[in-house]
């Protein structure tokens, strides 16, 4: 293929329709970061293992490295930048992550927040097993996951475990 062919797309990102011309091979995460400069979504493995690039597509968490931007044409995408209710405020989950020290290096945090948000949307009072299942697709190499589980429990009003 000698000439680069571009495709026109329009994706609603964090409530705003963004139009662009992309190469079909551009992944959704590269589009978000490099074209829209929404660098909150992190790139980890680029092949669907680490979950750092998780975003919501039409409300459901997906890995934005395993989806081409052209596939999101006409769909609605929410990134970590779109989770807070308004500028300067944090969502309940984001606040709980601070409260419970659910991050250290912060690399996995955007993906974790997306996964936890999606969980609470579907299940407002998850038990610990549901929380662990919901974040099972996201790798964290710092926290040992416990504080992340605690944060979700904190945000959803569940009692934390005996380790507190």
């Amino acid at each position: 293929m000698s000439k680069i062919k571009l495709t026109s797309i329009a994706i609603k990102v964090n409530g705003v329709v963004r139009e662009a011309q992309v190469e079909p091979r551009t992944t959704l995460v590269d589009f978000l970061r490099d074209t829209l400069f929404l660098t909150g979504t992190h790139i980890g493995c680029e092949h669907g293992v680490c979950g750092a690039c998780s975003v919501l597509v039409d409300g459901d968490p997906v890995r934005s490295c395993c989806m081409f931007a052209v596939q999101a044409d006409g769909l609605s995408v929410t990134t970590v930048e779109g989770l807070a209710p308004e500028r300067g405020k944090l969502s309940a989950i984001q606040d709980a992550f601070c409260e419970k020290h659910a991050m250290q290096c912060g690399y996995c945090t955007p993906g974790m927040l997306i996964a936890c948000h999606a969980l609470v949307e579907r299940n407002p009072h998850p038990d610990e097993a549901a929380i662990r299942e919901a974040i099972s697709g996201n790798l964290c190499r710092c926290t040992g996951y416990q504080q992340i589980v605690d944060a979700v429990k904190h945000a959803t009003g569940a009692k934390s475990g005996a380790h507190d």
Binding site: G48, G51, S54, V57, D60, P61, V62, R63, C66, M67, A115, A118, L119, E133, A134, S136, G137, N138
Partner: peptide
């Protein structure tokens, strides 16, 4: 099967 993120797609 995979994770929530992969089962959604």
């Amino acid at each position: 099967v995979g994770h929530a993120q992969t089962r959604n797609r």
